[in-house]
Amino acid sequence: MLEMINVMINQVATDPIHQFKLSKIVDWQIGGVDLSFTNSALFMAIGVGLAIVLFMMATSKIETVPGRSQSIAEIAYGFVAGMVRDMMGEEGMRFFPFVFSLFVFIFFANMLGMFPYFFTTTSHIIVNFALAMLVMAIVIGYGFYKNGFKFLKIFFPSGVPAALSPLVALIEFISFLSRPISLSVRLFANMLAGHIMLKVFAGFVFSLAATGSALAIIAPVALAGTVAVVALEFLVAFLQAYVFAILTCVYLNDALHPGH
């Protein structure tokens, strides 16, 4: 019994990164490329499925006075639509489906990660980087499609003296390249750090209690800390989805109105 507990403590306390390990559920090798269905892919699929089912339920019977699920869908729509309109104006609403999907996907991935033993998709930087690159591809593609070469004005902001403009253009260029990185690293770092912190704090509870000495008195403090961190993580899970969506709007605005 004691040995079992010890093994448990060791696993929890010494390996807080184990939760991020990818494992293959179905092994697929197509044309020499590893396309296996992993636990990460599973939770992406669960998130998307959950979102589709919830929104279908919410919109299945639409009433003038909304019920509970319809209100949630309306609040979600209003929240993202307000964000898109504020950042890009009415013509930005053509990007609404994209921003809304992005927000809901990240939000569900983050929230699913809050369940014990669930996998947090967004704790892997490559997933976030793919999403960020999708945003940048749309910004560049739509920017050139709509403005032609005037899109390059984003590197030459108005009101800059001619002598300084090469330097400013270099700085704007680095700034543009750093966008997908800051976008993906922020989401990844928050989810990774939050979940590790949660595991470590929870591990403290066990290892302090198991010492059997006077230190065991502090164990409830660590437990209270864990509860507080869980609350904080719920806030961060929402906040990061929100920040990702709003920055998407800011960047898409550059494609709509370059060089202002």
Partner: peptide
């Protein structure tokens, strides 16, 4: 909190991208 994290990540990412280039 969101604004703070935005500042921190953008600062670091810019330096990283500059150095990488």
């Amino acid at each position: 909190m969101g604004v703070g994290m935005r500042m921190a990540s953008e600062f670091v990412a810019s330096i990283f991208v500059g150095a990488a280039l």
